[in-house]
């Protein structure tokens, strides 16, 4: 295997996994922008999305598109419940209790999944059964390509939705200035609920996309969530472009670090880099104020 092929292989898988981090990071960023809440449960929402797909696809035997859409609907409802019972009671408190509550929610989701599904990893079939193809010594897994395509599509959708629809504009207005939005007659609480639903769906889609690669277990989301959080910070909190670039950067760094330095420190590379980043250029790639407003 040539050195170039090795590089190509690792870059490809890094970018693809980075796409998943980006989807999760986007969810975290959206919630952060509209509610100032950092959702530590995003990783576990991903896990629930994967389980939802597993049930619909593998246990009920529904065809892929239907299972996928149904899972999105289910997770959307779940997103509403999440904001109603975790965010809403705490909406007027400082960021700390809310962070902790989302961490608690994450623990809860993991353990509920453990009780319901047990600890055996579950297998979900990929979208295309044929697997993949090899070009120039680099294996292109179709599922990875699906991940990249869906991620790109969602980012485009996101742009069109927020810039060109009335609902999207209202959501954006709410994110920017809640008080002002309220004065303009935008139903702020509803918009926040929408944001949570949308973010939950983003996380869940991430979970459904990685399910065939990762296998579905109750702990699959914890490192995913942390890395998405790291991606968010890398890109500058609350910035949509930042989430995309941060996610892919994290994916690439860990893939290349694992390949060329040591696989056992794979998880350390992105966090180490982030640490340096935070201490040297805390505002992220796309600059956001880091210190909390005094």
């Amino acid at each position: 295997m040539s050195g170039l092929a090795i590089l190509g292989q690792n870059v490809f898988s890094g970018i693809a996994i980075g796409g998943v981090y980006a989807l999760l990071a986007l969810g975290i960023a959206l919630i952060y922008r509209s509610t100032n809440v950092t959702n530590f449960a995003q990783g576990d929402i991903t896990m629930l999305g994967a389980y939802a797909l597993y049930i619909l696809l593998e246990q009920l035997g529904l065809p892929y598109p239907i299972a996928f859409l149904l899972a999105i609907v289910v997770m959307g409802i779940f997103g509403w419940l999440f904001q109603r019972f975790v965010y809403y009671p705490l909406r007027n408190r400082s960021f700390l209790p809310v962070i902790i509550a989302t961490i608690g929610a994450g623990i809860l989701f993991q353990n509920v999944a453990l009780v319901v599904f047990g600890s055996i990893p579950r297998k979900v079939n990929p979208v295309f059964a044929s697997g993949g193809f090899t070009v120039g010594g680099v294996y292109f897994d179709l599922q990875y390509i699906v991940i990249l395509v869906v991620t790109a599509a969602l980012f485009v959708f996101q742009y069109l939705f927020f810039e060109h629809t009335s609902l999207g504009k209202k959501m954006q207005a709410t994110a920017q200035d809640k008080t002002m939005a309220q004065l303009l007659g935008i139903p702020v609480a509803l918009m926040i609920a929408f944001t949570f639903i949308y973010s939950t769906i983003l996380g869940a889609i991430g979970g459904m996309l990685v399910a065939p690669i990762y296998f579905v277990t109750n702990r699959m989301g914890s490192t995913l969530g942390l890395k998405a959080f790291a991606a968010c910070i890398c890109g500058g909190f609350g910035d949509v472009r930042g989430a995309l670039i941060g996610g892919i950067a994290i994916g690439l760094i860990e893939a290349l670090g694992a390949a060329y330095i040591a696989p056992v420190y794979k998880d350390a590379f992105p966090f180490l880099l982030l640490l340096v980043f935070l201490l040297v250029r805390p505002q992220g790639i796309f600059g956001e104020k880091v210190s909390e407003k005094a």
């Binding site: 950092t38 942390l226 790291a230 910070i233 420190y265 350390a268 966090f271 935070l278 210190s291």
Partner: peptide, 21 residues
């Protein structure tokens, strides 16, 4: 240098790296 959720992330980074070490 950083505060709030960013500080939380710094501590998480330290935690993850340290555990691997």
């Amino acid at each position: 240098k950083v505060s709030g959720r960013y500080l939380a992330m710094v501590t998480i980074c330290v935690q993850v790296v340290f555990a691997l070490v």
